[in-house]
Amino acid sequence: MITLNHYLALGGMLFCIGLYGALAKKNAIAILMGIELMLNAVNINLVAFNHYLEPSKVVGQVFAIFVIVVAAAEVAVGLALVLNIYRRRLESNVDDFNWLKW
């Protein structure tokens, strides 16, 4: 029997994997991939809540679609940024993106 907790645990695990990718990778594109994984983990949770807690409505799915929209916008802008930076510095390694420092 698969319960809500299974789905939530799956979402949590996926989120942590994505977070690890976002925190521990050098390549900017890999970081964006990690963020995508995190967003998908959130979506799994939303849909699972929808299915188990309020099955007769589709609110969770609607919310998940909004997340997908935002994720699409985010990844488009993020990759454009990476391209732009790469053109200027010939580098997509985030370790060298440290202009924000003191």
Binding site: A22, L23, A24, V94, F97, N98, K101
Partner: peptide, 17 residues
């Protein structure tokens, strides 16, 4: 303390999480 400000976003994210 300004050296804490590494300018590396991933370090910041690490601290936040």
């Amino acid at each position: 303390l300004r050296y804490i400000q590494t300018g590396n976003l991933q370090t910041y994210a690490l601290v936040i999480f």
